[in-house]
């Protein structure tokens, strides 16, 4: 394949990917960065990485898996970079289970409050657990999550099994308090 044909295919693939998975990518990015301005920069970084990476796409996996992997890998790198600069501490799933309702509540509309609480939980997690939770919220099955993360399906199933009550307890605590 000539270079120009390759570039055309890369451009076409990128446009297709951005159209089909743009919303998911934006949600993943929100899971990795809360600050609006920084989130826009990160989103741009993900799109740039996606476009560049698609030069090497030869159908090794589905386009969706490819897009999700790039989005999460760039997101995780961003988190690692920010943690190095501000020494922020992430928690793993076990610690998150212990600190389910420690954060102050803000009175917002019900659904927004639910989202805020979930987002707070997501942002407190380590990158791998965060990726799992984001993929779980996108309603992916264990096999798809396994293809994106590289974890075995059994490991994914175990972790997802622990995510479910964590989310439920977050939201039930809000219901009780309201």
């Amino acid at each position: 394949m000539s270079k120009s044909e390759n570039t055309t295919s890369q451009d076409t693939l990128y446009q297709e990917a951005a159209r089909a998975f743009g919303s998911e990518v934006a949600r993943f990015v929100a899971g990795y960065e809360r600050d609006d301005a920084k989130r826009q920069d990160l989103l741009q970084e993900v799109h740039l990485a996606l476009w560049q990476s698609l030069a090497g796409f030869k159908g090794q996996c589905s386009l969706r898996t490819w897009v999700y992997r790039v989005a999460h890998n760039v997101g995780a790198t961003h988190v690692q970079r920010s943690m190095r600069s501000v020494q922020r501490k992430s928690t793993n799933l076990e610690e998150a289970e212990l600190h389910v309702d420690e954060r102050a509540e803000i009175i917002l509309t019900d659904s927004r409050l639910d989202l805020e609480r979930v987002m707070t939980l997501i942002h407190s997690l380590e990158v791998l657990d965060r990726e799992l939770m984001l993929l779980y919220l996108e309603d992916l099955d264990a096999a798809s999550i396994s293809a994106i993360t590289g974890l075995s399906t059994r490991n994914v199933a175990t972790k997802v099994h622990r995510i479910k009550p964590l989310l439920t307890s977050r939201l039930s605590n809000r219901s009780k308090s309201s």
Binding site: Y14, A26, L48, L137, L167, S175
Partner: peptide, 26 residues
């Protein structure tokens, strides 16, 4: 709110998806 409702809520978020032209990416 059950699991499925939470997932729907998550997926219904309206976030800026960003629009990047190929020229800008280059």
């Amino acid at each position: 709110m059950n699991d499925q409702e939470l997932k729907s809520l998550w997926q219904s978020q309206t976030l800026m998806t960003g629009s990047y032209s190929l020229e800008q990416l280059q």
